[in-house]
């Protein structure tokens, strides 16, 4: 469990980090919380020449409200998100998702930016990011661009980030009106990662009917995805048990589910359907 040799630098600013990365974007890696990268390095499955530790750039860690948006700095830790009183009141899906991640040590070190950039097929944040229609603010040498969550996750461990780019901020439109959230997860008994994770974000009208639904599911496919079938089946309907049940049946539509030693693809889909239903029920119950 000893990584191959590597260098380590601590930039003082994001600009410096980008300059450092630009030297050789393929063999230089950004280090945030290190809780995905370091394990891979210890197994020598990743062998970067240089780590650029952005985890110490203070200005990259924040949670704030700005206009109708919530802005989250990329190196904000899971714990900071889990314990944010602000988020608990204005966007409870984020703390709920954060709380489900790993254990206390992991949450103290791991960052939301690292998690999204790593895009582990069983990572929790991608589901929440999709459900909240988050936007990723990406900076590279001389450029800044904004990518929607739906376009950000490309494939297994693959995002829209290009070598040399850094995810700087996550932007979320402040939920308004009668919204309700829930995050429901089946943790793998060994790793704690999501066998299935379902992030639900519903907006209800005055009558309690579903005005809009955005649902992100992780753990099932090679990347997290929006459960469009479920969303459609909820939108415009009264959220009674039957509607929810029928809608949840669409949790895996069009997804070729993973299978591993713990769960076959059939069973994963079953879990996704059941927990989608339960997550919707849990969200509705908060209202």
């Amino acid at each position: 469990m000893i990584p191959a040799q590597f260098d380590y630098q601590v930039p003082q600013s994001l600009e410096e980090a980008i300059r450092l990365l630009a030297q050789d974007p393929d063999s230089i890696k950004v280090l945030a919380g290190g809780h995905s990268l370091i394990p891979a390095m210890k197994l020598r499955l990743a062998q970067p020449q240089l780590l650029v530790d952005i985890g110490r750039i203070k200005s990259l860690s924040y949670i704030k409200e700005e206009g109708d948006q919530i802005l989250i700095g990329a190196t904000t830790t899971h714990y900071e998100l889990e314990s944010s009183e602000l988020l608990k009141s204005i966007c409870p899906l984020l703390p709920a998702c954060a709380k489900s991640i790993g254990d206390v040590q992991v949450r103290n070190k791991g960052t939301i930016g690292g998690s999204l950039a790593h895009s582990d097929p069983a990572g929790d944040w991608p589901a929440a990011a999709l459900a909240l229609n988050a936007e990723m603010v990406i900076v590279g040498p001389g450029l800044e661009r904004v990518v929607k969550a739906a376009d950000f996750f490309v494939d297994l461990l693959t995002t829209d980030l290009k070598p040399g780019e850094i995810l700087r901020e996550i932007r979320i439109k402040k939920p308004t009106g009668r919204f309700c959230h829930a995050y429901q997860k089946v943790p793998h008994p060994a790793s704690g990662f999501a066998v299935v994770g379902v992030a639900v974000n519903l907006v209800l009208n005055g009558a309690g009917d579903c005005e809009a639904a955005t649902i992100g599911i992780t753990g099932v496919g090679t990347k997290a995805y929006r459960a469009n079938g479920v969303e459609t089946a909820l939108t415009g309907r009264a959220l009674d048990a039957a509607t929810i049940e029928v809608a949840a049946e669409h949790a895996c539509d069009g997804v070729d589910a993973n299978s591993d030693l713990y769960a076959s693809s059939e069973y994963r889909c079953q879990l996704a359907r059941v927990h989608t239903r339960r997550a919707i029920e849990a969200a509705v119950a908060t209202r």
Binding site: L43, R44, L45, P121, A122, L156, L157, H188, L261, Y262
Partner: peptide, 17 residues
């Protein structure tokens, strides 16, 4: 080797990809 012993949960997805 290492990929078999530690990559179990991702081997299938990697092969797919």
């Amino acid at each position: 080797g290492t990929i078999a012993s530690v990559g179990q949960r991702m081997i299938q997805a990697t092969a797919k990809m």
